Amino acid sequence: MTTRVTLISPVVTAALREARFDDDVPPDGKALAAARAVAGHLPAAGRVLVSPSARCRATAGALGLVPDGEAPDGWALGRWRGRTLAEVSAEEPDAVAAWLSDPDAAPHDAESLRDLCARVGGWLDGLAATPGRVVAVVEPEIVRACAVRALGAPEQAFWRIDVPPLTATEFSGRSGRWNLTAGRPPA
Score class of each variant (00 low, 15 high):
94 D>C: 08
146 C>I: 04
165 P>V: 00
63 L>N: 04
151 L>D: 11
85 L>T: 13
133 R>S: 12
159 W>H: 09
18 E>I: 02
89 S>P: 00
132 G>R: 08
89 S>E: 15
16 L>Q: 14
110 A>Q: 09
15 A>I: 03
8 I>R: 01
169 T>E: 05
67 P>V: 00
75 W>E: 01
138 V>P: 02
160 R>N: 15
160 R>G: 12
126 G>F: 05
179 N>I: 04
78 G>L: 05
124 L>C: 07
113 L>C: 09
101 S>I: 02
176 G>H: 09
58 A>Y: 05
77 L>K: 06
78 G>M: 08
164 P>N: 03
84 T>C: 01
60 A>N: 06
83 R>Q: 07
26 P>V: 01
134 V>G: 02
168 A>M: 04
119 R>V: 01
38 V>E: 00
38 V>I: 01
153 A>H: 09
76 A>R: 15
135 V>P: 00
172 S>Y: 09
98 A>V: 08
134 V>Q: 04
157 A>L: 14
178 W>Q: 00
97 A>I: 03
105 A>D: 03
121 G>L: 01
6 T>H: 10
161 I>V: 13
5 V>F: 03
75 W>Y: 10
163 V>E: 00
23 D>T: 12
92 E>T: 01
135 V>F: 01
35 A>M: 03
96 V>G: 05
109 D>L: 14
15 A>D: 15
85 L>E: 12
112 S>R: 06
176 G>L: 02
78 G>K: 10
57 R>S: 13
153 A>I: 04
63 L>C: 04
180 L>D: 09
83 R>F: 03
180 L>V: 14
149 R>D: 04
168 A>Y: 00
131 P>H: 09
95 A>F: 09
138 V>L: 03
27 P>G: 05
42 L>R: 10
26 P>H: 12
79 R>S: 13
139 E>K: 13
150 A>M: 03
101 S>P: 06
39 A>I: 01
11 V>L: 02
136 A>I: 11
144 R>E: 08
52 P>D: 11
124 L>N: 09
130 T>E: 15
123 W>V: 08
114 R>S: 14
111 E>K: 10
109 D>I: 06
113 L>R: 14
109 D>P: 06
